[in-house]
Amino acid sequence: MKNIQLKNISRSFNSNKDGMLLFNIFDKTIKDKNSILLEIDNEIAMSSSFLNSSFGEILSLYGIDVLRSHIKIKTTKNQFDRIVNYISKYERVHLA
């Protein structure tokens, strides 16, 4: 399992463009049948545009089960709760 630090991927976590950088990492990991531990610093503020273009796009392409089998997250409980909340909302609104 490869460790990836989110803060090393981009300088900001606000735009769709920023989110696509993370999407490309997710996509390559899944296509190469690898797995990653994504480390998310407790100070990083991710906007919905960033999340849409990273987690959202990958969920639309592969679904939550594939994402779960390839990606683990190392972060604080607050950050993890926010990501889980986003994923639940995305699934409810766009994938139901």
């Binding site: 531990l37 480390e39 407790n42 939550i64 994402l67 779960r68 990606i71 683990k72 997250i73 190392k74 972060t75 604080t76 409980k77 607050n78 950050q79 993890f80 990501i83 889980v84 994923i87």
Partner: peptide, 13 residues
């Protein structure tokens, strides 16, 4: 607001 949180753990999605 939530309390500031620094302790990290590994989570499954």
């Amino acid at each position: 607001f939530d309390e500031y949180d620094e302790s990290e753990e590994i989570y499954d999605l």
